[in-house]
Design a protein around this nucleic acid. Structure first.
Lengths: 250, 250
DNA sequence: CTGTGTTTTTGATTTTTATCAACCCGTACG
DNA sequence: CGTACGGGTTGATAAAAATCAAAAACACAG
């Protein structure tokens, strides 16, 4: 697999790691280097859990930024919306991932975070996180990594949006999801989509019809099995090959 | 102007701020809150200046990540390249901006940074930056902002790549450049492009011919004057309107 | 169980953009 | 001096994706 595909697929690839006791905060807890005392400090940091019903917002654009959120259970999308009603999905977040870091730069969020199913998050007050990370250098370093990973992840997305055709984007999306599920210890080749075709399309810069057609075509070729929201990756190797081979990319 | 356009145009909008004495490190120096002693600490941090000739690389993909770089003079592009020779420009950086933060997550860079003209950068060793930011909370907070801004900026790009048609992308690109020049105290409506049509196209997910056509068409409409690399934005208001009005976006 | 609204699929057509090709313009270089 | 080359423009054509349209599948409230 070439660099481009690795990029696109590895968007947000995560390694499973020991969770904090409060919640499965895989992304923020380092596997090594933290003393028990430090871990306890972090546990205290996670001040609150919050349940978000399907369709409800965890935060909205313009709201004051106070915390980042570790998804404990469920699934979120973030989207930017414009005055005239258009909106674009910028990311999806599954259990074990951290969202809300967009707000750090401006003291307020610049996108909406919507639960795609009944979800539960751990709230991590950012000011406190900053204070503590001053006392625990390992934590600081790790926070920087998580933020940088978001940058790399976004740049992989840009790569995808700029250089791939419709079907390749869908493949990259499916492989990416699969990889993220794997990294979290779930079945990799078999999963349910939490989002609609329209949301996938919005995320990939495509129309929902195009996404649907891509699914159908991949199924015809025997590469995936699609049944409504359920996806089974039949031939992962071939799927990956689709991204690495010299296709007439734009 | 709606949120979408604000996003796209404001990618990396910066407010001019007092520079460090070593270099015009506008992005990392807070205008308020730093004592003279602290400023001096930061000055010592900037360990080295480096000149990069046009066409040369500041760093390359895979190289060990040790520092981030403040562009003192000149212009850079970053690009990801794949085994089969394809490559995609992921960003441009002008004087006063910081690049190299992609490497934080993985200890190595994941893209190439190439000088588009003879340039000069200040090297900021990242480990030291992290250490010092522990002693200077204001600096830490600011570092986080700069990183978050990169995230927001990238998401604006994603928005653009996903939701805009060719001509809109070009307009957003020009307005964004203009805004960044303005923020740095240069003439806003009148500037030279440092990159080729091909590089612009790669960045915007378009072919060079499409970029060229977009320029021509905008010129026909009297919105910009294009002469080779020189750009004059004739009617900024109309240009901005192009992004906000309900166009048949994808 | 039934009707209503949402989601998905599929087909026909149009629009947008890529592709292929020719040509222009500087300029670096033998 | 001319010529080879990189960068840019423009036109004709092809490919990809959007748009329009219709119908099927489904989810859910009453």
């Amino acid at each position: 697999m070439n660099e481009l595909s690795r990029q696109a697929v590895a968007i947000a690839a995560k390694i499973p790691q020991p969770a904090c006791s409060q919640c499965n905060l895989q992304e923020l807890c380092l596997p090594v280097g933290l003393t028990t005392a430090e871990l306890s400090t972090i546990d205290h940091l996670v001040s609150e859990r919050r349940k978000i019903a399907r369709g409800d917002a965890l935060f909205r654009s313009g709201e004051r930024f106070t915390a980042i959120y570790a998804v404990k259970l469920g699934f979120f999308k973030t989207e930017v919306l414009s005055e005239d009603g258009r909106h674009q999905v910028t990311n999806f977040y599954m259990a074990g991932e951290v969202l809300g870091m967009d707000g750090i730069s401006a003291e307020s969020h610049h996108c909406d975070a919507i639960a795609l199913e009944d979800s539960e998050v751990c709230l991590i007050p950012f000011q406190q996180l900053e204070s503590i990370s001053i006392k625990v250098p390992t934590l600081q370093r790790h926070l920087h990594r998580v933020m940088s990973r978001e940058i790399v992840r976004d740049q992989g997305m840009m790569m995808m949006l700029g250089a791939m055709r419709a079907e390749e984007r869908v493949v990259a999306f499916l492989l990416n999801l699969s990889q993220r599920y794997t990294a979290r210890g779930y079945a990799a080749a078999d999963f349910n989509l939490r989002m609609t075709r329209e949301e996938i399309g919005s995320y990939l810069g495509l129309k929902l019809e195009t996404v649907s057609r891509a699914f159908s075509h991949l199924q015809e070729d025997g590469l995936v099995q699609v049944e409504k929201k359920h996806i089974r990756l039949v031939d992962t190797t071939k799927l990956k090959k689709m991204l690495s081979q010299e296709s007439t990319a734009r």
